[in-house]
């Protein structure tokens, strides 16, 4: 079984969110970059586990991004995976990114394509579904458990108000949420090995982006907290009822 794991670069969760160039670009000054947590913690680790237990033979990583993604890809390779592919393009458009991934996926005839549940910067939850459509495979979103025996995958996924268990034949596309695996810390051997693993850079296929960000904005600041004394809980209830009209 060949697995393709989609990884993307994301700003560290403590990053200050600010914009530049008349609010049209994310201000990267002082931002630390990390592997998107859903990719790092869940999909990548699960793919590596499947290889460790011989359910998978090959694990490839893919990212669509500029050369600034290379350190992140090396970090991901330090956790595991045989090689990485970087499609040399920078875009926010889900269709554009997914089409690049689908292009590589078709050429590599993968049995399983993993994405994270969402990117923590763009919050699309979109790439997996689009890739699945483009490669014409079943798509299981928001998986919380994933296993595979021969060519049958067993997946538990989140549905509104509960979960659903299903079986499906490979090839498939799966987006991974919490539960699929436990976060791992790369060890020294992994970090050394990652340095020499192949990182192929390929040029993007000609795809038209269907969306573009015209402007970013920040939520209005809160007016400030109204503190109520600890011995006057009734006053809090009154405020929530009469002033905030929230209860």
């Amino acid at each position: 079984m060949k697995i393709l794991v989609c990884v993307s670069k994301a700003p560290d969760t403590t990053s200050k969110i600010a914009f530049k160039e008349s609010n049209t670009k994310f201000d990267e000054t002082g931002v630390q970059w990390i592997i998107n947590p859903y990719d790092e913690w869940y999909s990548l680790v699960r793919a590596i586990e499947l290889k460790e237990k011989d359910a998978a033979t090959i694990v490839h990583l893919i990212t669509v991004g500029g050369a600034d993604c290379d350190p992140i890809i090396r970090k991901a390779l330090a956790l595991g995976g045989d090689e990485a592919i970087r499609v040399n393009a920078d875009s926010n458009d889900s269709y554009y990114i997914a089409a690049q991934i689908a292009e590589v996926a078709k050429q590599g005839s993968y049995d399983l394509i993993f994405t994270g549940k969402e990117t923590i910067d763009y919050n699309g939850s979109s790439i997996g579904g689009i890739v699945a459509e483009l490669v014409d495979a079943p798509y299981i979103s928001l998986a919380t458990k994933f296993d595979v025996a021969a060519t049958t995958a067993t997946v538990v996924r989140e549905i509104d108000g509960g979960e659903e268990t299903s079986e499906v034949q490979l090839p498939i596309v799966v987006s991974c949420a919490k539960g699929v695996a436990e976060q791992r810390i790369p060890n020294m051997r992994g970090i050394m090995a990652a340095r020499t693993k192949p990182l192929k850079v390929v040029e993007p296929a000609a795809v038209e982006a269907l969306t573009s960000v015209v402007e970013y904005s920040l939520p209005p600041a809160k007016a400030g907290v109204k503190l109520v004394a600890a011995d006057n809980v009734a006053e809090l209830v009154r405020l929530l009822h009469e002033e905030a009209k929230a209860i």
Binding site: S94, G124, S126, A132, E133
Partner: peptide
């Protein structure tokens, strides 16, 4: 989250979620 993006690809439509 499961369906919208996939549908957009089938229609070659731009998608904005959230």
């Amino acid at each position: 989250k499961a369906v919208a993006a996939r549908l957009s690809a089938s229609l070659k439509a731009g998608v904005v979620t959230g």
